[in-house]
């Protein structure tokens, strides 16, 4: 019974939470928010899903294994730093695209870096929760 309600609620809540998390990530450069908070929100979404449908289902939904997500996040953050090498500048020197996206602002390597943060947080939190849940 509770699981039915939970499942129903999750159906609405999850997309909302995921959307919010991406929103938080993207606006972080200009308003309070950022990759870490966004990542935690996304993880909360997956946590609800796991609670409702079980960890296996969540893993299937995720498509990528949490460990891969963590690694991808680290790699993204590193990549954001290494871009500067092409210009002969020190590690982590920011590079920006000339255009600005509406609502996000300028797009550049710091955003990629923040995406890396987001991914690591999502991956780690889901890894912990799912491992605990399966235990």
């Amino acid at each position: 019974m509770t699981s039915f309600i939970l499942r129903a609620a999750t159906g609405y809540l999850m997309p909302l939470l995921l959307l919010l998390s991406v929103f938080m990530l993207l606006r972080g450069h200009n308003e309070p928010g950022g990759g870490f908070i966004g990542g935690l929100l996304a993880a909360a979404a997956f946590a609800f899903h796991a609670l409702a449908w079980g960890p296996r289902a969540t893993l299937e939904l995720l498509r990528a294994d949490p460990r891969t997500i963590i690694a991808a996040g680290l790699a993204a953050a590193l990549l954001a730093g290494v871009v500067a090498a092409a210009a002969g500048e020190p590690f982590l020197t920011a590079h920006w695209l000339p255009i600005a996206l509406p609502g996000v602002g300028k797009v550049g390597t710091p955003l990629l870096f923040d995406v890396g943060v987001y991914l690591v947080v999502v991956g780690t939190t889901t890894l912990i929760l799912l491992t605990l849940g399966e235990d």
């Binding site: 294994d65 460990r67 690694a71 090498a85 020190p90 590690f91």
Partner: peptide, 24 residues
């Protein structure tokens, strides 16, 4: 100088770790 040589001792193993985790 862009000083990558100062960063490499940190970056090389970190990159190896990230790549290694991708191939977990």
């Amino acid at each position: 100088s862009s000083g990558w040589i100062v960063l490499l001792p940190l970056l090389a193993p970190l990159a190896a770790a990230a790549a290694g985790l991708l191939a977990w």
